[in-house]
Write a protein that binds this DNA or RNA. Sequence first.
DNA 1: AAGATCTTGTT
DNA 2: ACAAGATCT
Length: 451
Amino acid sequence: MTSPTLVWFRDDLRIADNPALTAAAERGAPIVALFILDEESAGMRPLGAASRWWLHHSVESLRARLAERGVPLVLRRGAAGVVVRAIVRESGASAVFWNRRYASAERAIDSELKSGLRSDGLEVQSFAASLLFEPWTVQTGAGTHYSVFTPFWRACQALPAPRLPLPEPQLLHPGSAGVQRIVASDTLADWNLLPTAPDWAAGLRETWTPGEPAAHDRLREFVATDLPLYDQARDEPSAGATSLLSPRLRWGEISPFSAWHAATGAGGSARFLSELGWREFAWHTLFFFPNLATANLRAEFDNFPWPQPDAQALRAWREGNTGFGIVDAGMRELWHTGHMHNRVRMITASFLVKNLLIDWRIGEQWFWDTLVDADAASNPFNWQWVAGSGADAAPYFRIFNPELQAKKFDPHGLYVQQWAADASPLKIVDLGLTRKAALGAYDVVKRSGRP
DNA sequence: AAGATCTTGTT
DNA sequence: ACAAGATCT
């Protein structure tokens, strides 16, 4: 019996353009695939509810597709460092391959495992798969990381172009099926990832098909029909011109390399590529600032005089009952579909922080819980961008006016009509007064930064 | 990835 | 009178 190669899947729930899986296939030995639900290791952020829903269906899709190719996907729950060692023992694996992760708790787990397994004599390899540019390869002239997007993205584009995506590896080796030891697996149902009592996921089911095949279908459709109009239409939430790739990228059902080359091959859109760039920049930032979700990137924002949060206002924001059509439409779209148009994310976030004066971390946590694309880097990065506390952030005095934004980007009210036709017109705040209050609070931050 | 207001240019 | 552009916050 040949000792197998263990491929540990994490944020890369795909078969195509999966360098770890391809390298395992080339190694020739049978493959055992593993996915761990790690709710135990120190520092792991618990998945939000919408993320758990997506994960369930995406893992199910991956399991079925690997099974068709003769590769068992073992599911286990527990601290990854312990589980991987157990699976190595149980399977008799002599090599362990995975694609890299970039958040700090995950990196700590992975590097400890890599050195531990290697000193046990195993072959361990990690691969670049989830980012176009490894964070440490993008450096300023001074050898530091970037804190402003434009020079960051310029530096990325001066690096060698992103590699071509890898084709699906050949996984079925004649005679290899069934020769592996059987390794016990949880069932997905054991993990209780889906909501019950109540089952609030009907809107998610209507909206999304998780899994690699649907991700590629969407990419093809986006490139063929939406990309030509992208630059002009991406900011109109009723236009349906955005890629809808965010949850697929977050879970790695499709790689950024596939998205990059599909877009450039179709004539490209500098704007769409730069959106991929913002995703890169968010991960670049998280890599060098691991507390991005909890700490202000600009330390002077620690002096922001947040008032006691208004529980009623917060609830109205969450439920889409603020009386501002575009805010309410966005929050309802989010609740129903687990997604919100990018422009509207900025508007609703600005409203929470700058009109309700509620700490960006509270909004970030709500998005974390309700977005199917909740991403450990992009979500806190973008909240800090809106709040003004982040990297290359919106200046503190840039306060969106939701009514002007609606006039500009939803001039016919189609988006508001779609999501908030029945919303109450009663406005919970005065935009002018709350704007002044926010400017006053930011002034405190500004003055605190001076000697 | 902005808003308010002031300035300049065109009817 | 109004719009586009510059400037400050």
